[in-house]
């Protein structure tokens, strides 16, 4: 299972690099969406690995909150582009 987590950490570095390099704001938003989802899934993997239900519930909540934050931020940035 540690190998799986290592692979996920390596996959997490790709959108982090993308967010650092990219100039277009929507590409950065995509990287943010990718990172928010990946970190939540990693929390869920760790909770299964340790058989800890408390972390599992928190991981599920963080997964939905990350998506909600993305939606809110995307709406505000879209309004900025219209004005």
């Amino acid at each position: 299972m540690t190998v799986v987590l290592m692979a996920m950490i390596l996959a997490l570095l790709i959108p982090i690099y993308e967010a650092w390099q990219e100039d277009d704001i929507w590409q950065t938003m995509l990287a943010f969406a990718s990172i928010a989802t990946k970190t939540s899934v990693m929390i869920l993997v760790v909770s299964v690995l340790r058989d800890d239900w408390m972390i599992g519930v928190v991981g599920a909540i963080i997964l939905s909150v990350g998506n909600a934050a993305l939606m809110l931020l995307a709406h505000i940035i879209k309004r900025m582009g219209e004005l």
């Binding site: 928010a36 970190t39 963080i62």
Partner: peptide, 26 residues
């Protein structure tokens, strides 16, 4: 920088959850 702050928040929440502080992560 705002979006980077969101990324930082996601990574910090993951770290706190992995270290065992579920309430701090939430």
């Amino acid at each position: 920088a705002l979006i980077m702050r969101g990324i930082l928040g996601a990574v910090a929440a993951m770290l706190y959850a992995v270290l065992g502080a579920a309430d701090v992560a939430l």
